[in-house]
Amino acid sequence: MTDSVLPQSLGDSARGDRWKPNRSLSKLTQKLIVLLFGAFAFVSVATTIGIVLTLIFETIEFFLEVSPWEFFTGTRWSPTFANPRFGIIVLLCGTFLTSVIGLLVAVPLGLLSAVCLSEYAPRSLRAWLKPALEILAGVPTVVFGYFALLMVTPFLKTFIPGLSTFNSLSAGLVLGFAVLPTIASLSEDAIFAVPLSLRQGSYALGATKRETVTGVVLPAALSGIVASIVLGVARAVGETMIVTLAAGQSPTLTLDPRSAVQTMTSFIVQITKGDAPYGSIEFKTLFAVGMTLFVITLVLNFFSFWFVRRFQEKYE
């Protein structure tokens, strides 16, 4: 019966003539693929190694010409002048000032928005507010720079006398709004993950909603919140375009938020914009400053790892 219906060739294949498993070829392909993809995975490790080696190599070159003592204790920064000075404290101070102003905005607003999104906002509204925050996170930083220099600074000038065109105040404020979505979104994940039973237990003891939030929910989510804040700090310290455009390029040792400062990142932009020749002292200075920046973010990262491991609460 079946033989008459099926064409001859298919009948053959059904009997197994075309059954050639060729396992050795498949296994060879798999081996090659694993090797190739393993090499791809190594690219990300190589990136880290590359960053560290690059920075170390040029930083050593830098310290052969400039004494570490001057680098860490000098209070003037003028590497491009005829009489160069290399006091990194000046740039650290600028970075510190803009970051602190930014974090004064981003940490309270970010945490409060996280609490609001997770605890107070109705689910339907949350579905709209979270993507809106993500849009804020997706705005290119050069656009924030435009906003800080050409919209926020003129606005602040109307009621803050003595505010210069480039100032760390408006750069810091806008920096805060650029960092805010990072802190809000990651803290919200941590707060949202706290089990409902903890909240119910707190209500059962007679606590109000606010007391439950600040006394039970936030401490329970502490490790996630701290991790989000540390990542926010790293973003603020490494942020480039906002501070370059709005905080200016004058390396002065000041804590006055109305005047212009130079951060580590805006120094790197200033030098690279003007084509520094390889091997010049400016070129080496770039990497010494980059190394300082990298070490700061690395320390922050390790702190975050340690904190999360030490204080993470696991709930079933």
Partner: peptide, 27 residues
């Protein structure tokens, strides 16, 4: 190796983008 790659990836996420610029400039 897998563990090293994993830690490394989460570490790279916090490295400022300008540092990648220095890597690109040098390499």
């Amino acid at each position: 190796f897998a563990k090293a790659v994993e830690i490394n990836i989460s570490n790279l996420a916090a490295v400022p983008s300008i540092i990648y610029g220095l890597l690109g400039l040098f390499v």
